[in-house]
C-alpha cells in the first residue's frame, strides 16, 4: 500500500508549525513503508494555506479541501472528509499532530477506517514490519507497537520531529469531500488567548511558573524574562488550577509537551506529571527555594533561591549583558 496522509492543523486560519513537524514524521514513515506524503488541508478558503504547506516542507501532494462544513473544526464534519481522503490516496498511515485537534479527531478517523491507532508516536521504523514507539505512564515507559490493521492511524509527538524546509515543492490539488451536514453538533466559538509571544510548543525558550509564585500578577516577572529572551511562558497545573495562568499554558502529561532549547522552571516542584511535558528540553534550569525539590533531579542547572529576587536579577543581568532583545 504505502503512502502517508497528514491531516493539517490550522488555528484561526494559520498553519500551525506542528503540522510541518508532522510532515517530517510522515517522511520518516514513507522511508519505511514507501509511497508519497499527502497532506489534507480542510477549511473554507484554504488555498493559500495549502500553497504555504506545499512550499518545500516535505510533502509530495497537498490536497486543499474547501467547504463551508470545514469553516470551523468539529470532529463530526472532519472525520468523513479525512476518511474519504485516506481511501482516495490509499494511505497506509494517516496521521495528525498530537495536539488537542489531533487527539479529538484521529480516534474517530481510526474507528471509521477500522484502523488501529497509536497516540503520541515518537518514532516509526522497520523491524520485520512497521513499528511505532510511544511514551506512556507519564513518560516513564516507552513501548514498541505493532498495528495489525492494513491502515494505521497515529498522532505524532511533534517535539520529536523537526519541520523540513528546502524540500521540492509539492503539487497542490483540489479535494472535494462528500460531507453531509450534521444537525447534532455545532461549533459555537473559539476564544483565543491572544499573545505576542511565540507559541509554547514552538518557542526556543520557555519560562514556566508554578504555584510557588503565589498569584497571577507574579507571573509578570516571568513574562518580562520571556520577552528578554524571545521566549514563551508556561505553567504547572497547580498554577493553572489556582487561576494564576490560563489553561492553555499548562505543561505536562495532561497539558502541552514542549522541548525547547532552554526551559526555565520557576517555583515548580517537579511532579512526575509536569516532567512528562518538559523532560525532552535541551537545557533545563530550575529556580526553587527548596533545595530538595524533585525538579533539581532533571535540571542541568539548579539555583536554590527565592524566585522573587532571582528572576528579576536574571532579567536585569541578561539585559545589561545584551543577551536577548
Amino acid at each position: 500500500m504505502g503512502n502517508v496522509l497528514v491531516v493539517a492543523e490550522l488555528q484561526a486560519g494559520v498553519v500551525r508549525k506542528v503540522t510541518l513537524d508532522t510532515i517530517a514524521f510522515a517522511r520518516q514513515a514513507v522511508d519505511v513503508i514507501g509511497g508519497q506524503v499527502h497532506v489534507l488541508v480542510l477549511g473554507d478558503g484554504v488555498d493559500a494555506q495549502a500553497a504555504e504547506i506545499a512550499a518545500g516542507h516535505g510533502a509530495d501532494v497537498v490536497h486543499a479541501g474547501n467547504g463551508a462544513a470545514f469553516a470551523n473544526y468539529i470532529a463530526e464534519n472532519f472525520t468523513p472528509a479525512v476518511v474519504q481522503a485516506a481511501e482516495a490516496v490509499d494511505a497506509e498511515i494517516v496521521c495528525a499532530p498530537s495536539s488537542m485537534f489531533g487527539k479529538d479527531l484521529m480516534p474517530c478517523v481510526a474507528a471509521k477506517l477500522g484502523a488501529g491507532m497509536v497516540s503520541d508516536a515518537t518514532e516509526v521504523f522497520d523491524d520485520g514490519g512497521v513499528r511505532f514507539k510511544r511514551p506512556l505512564w507519564s513518560g516513564n515507559v516507552i513501548t514498541t507497537l505493532e498495528v495489525t490493521t492494513p491502515r494505521k492511524v497515529a498522532t505524532v509527538r511533534t517535539t520529536e520531529f523537526e519541520a523540513i524546509s528546502g524540500y521540492a515543492d509539492a503539487s497542490v490539488q483540489a479535494f472535494t469531500a462528500d460531507v453531509g451536514a450534521r444537525d447534532d453538533a455545532e461549533f459555537v466559538s473559539f476564544d483565543q488567548v491572544k499573545s505576542d509571544r511565540p507559541e509554547l510548543t514552538d518557542a526556543a525558550v520557555v519560562i514556566a511558573g508554578g504555584r510557588g509564585l503565589g498569584s497571577g500578577e507574579n507571573f509578570d516577572m516571568l513574562m518580562t524574562l520571556a520577552d528578554q529572551l524571545g521566549g514563551a511562558v508556561g505553567a504547572s497545573r497547580a498554577a493553572v488550577d489556582s487561576g494564576y495562568a490560563p489553561n492553555d499554558w499548562q505543561i505536562g502529561q495532561t497539558g502541552k509537551v514542549v522541548a525547547p532549547n532552554l526551559y526555565i522552571a520557576v517555583a515548580i516542584s517537579g511532579a512526575i506529571q509536569h516532567l512528562a511535558g518538559m523532560k525532552g528540553s535541551k537545557t533545563i534550569v530550575a529556580i526553587n527555594k527548596d533545595g530538595d525539590a524533585p525538579i533539581f533531579e532533571v535540571a542541568d542547572y539548579g539555583l536554590v533561591a527565592d524566585a522573587f529576587t532571582a528572576v528579576p536579577e536574571l532579567t536585569e543581568k541578561l539585559k545589561s549583558l545584551g543577551i536577548g532583545s
Binding site: V141, I142, T144, L145, T148, T149, I284, Y301
Partner: peptide, 17 residues
C-alpha cells in the same frame, strides 16, 4: 488492533549541577 511488542524505560537525563 494494536499489540505492544516491548516495554522499555526512557533514557534518563544525566544529573545536573
Amino acid at each position: 488492533r494494536v499489540n505492544v511488542l516491548q516495554y522499555e524505560a526512557p533514557e534518563t537525563r544525566a544529573a545536573g549541577q
